[in-house]
């Protein structure tokens, strides 16, 4: 049981993700999560306003089921498979975050400074969540893929657009982490 409840190292997680990619391809599908955001729009009736969403979402049912599985997998992990929420961060990261006002970095999965209920009831708090969500939704669809579709599927199948997209992911991520996060917090 010890092996299951301990955090898994990278050399277990990376190959395990490759197995997920294998299984999806074996069953005739491509690995990618962000397409579901479009499917949600289509199901919600966005096709009445914008032709872009006039698609046959039933062909994507498998992917919706996949996403429901992801949620259940998260639930099972948090309920039964984790000894603690402690994350073994680099001490330097913990110290830098403390300077930015993030107390007890690594003591939980997510910082309460961003994700606690009290926090998102404030204007700034909800503003951060909404701004990030808009970027994720808009960005992944404009680039036509996220980490699973581009950085893993696309890079491993040697597609140039995926290399450019992955460089973009890092350009945006580094800008946020190094310049904007210190300004926001």
């Amino acid at each position: 049981m010890e092996v299951i409840t301990q955090p898994w190292p990278w050399y277990v997680a990376g190959p395990a993700i490759a197995i997920i990619l294998f299984l999806l391809n074996f069953f005739g599908k491509n690995f990618g999560v962000s397409t579901n955001l479009e499917t949600f729009c289509t199901i919600g009736g966005a096709g009445r306003f914008v032709d872009y969403f006039k698609t046959d979402w039933k062909a994507k049912t498998w992917s919706l089921v996949f996403v429901v599985g992801i949620v259940i997998g998260g639930f099972i992990s948090s309920e039964y498979l984790m000894a603690s929420q402690q994350i073994d961060l680099n001490p330097k990261t913990v110290q830098e975050l403390a300077e930015l006002g993030f107390a007890n970095a690594g003591s939980e999965y997510l910082p309460s400074e961003i994700f606690s209920v009290e926090n998102f009831l404030s204007i700034k708090g909800i503003g951060i969540l909404v701004a990030a969500g808009l970027c994720i939704g808009f960005g992944t669809r404009y680039a036509s893929g996220c980490t699973s579709g581009h950085a893993i599927t696309g890079l491993s199948s040697l597609q140039l657009p995926s290399l450019i997209a992955t460089i973009g992911f890092f350009a945006g991520g580094l800008l946020m982490t190094w310049l904007l996060i210190p300004l926001i917090f």
Binding site: I128, G133, S144, G172
Partner: peptide, 21 residues
């Protein structure tokens, strides 16, 4: 589309620490 879209996604990814999965 891939570079600009990717960068916009990257901003959101780093801010909330989560991509779609």
């Amino acid at each position: 589309r891939t570079f600009v879209g990717g960068s916009i996604f990257g901003l959101g990814w780093a801010l909330v620490g989560a991509c779609p999965g």
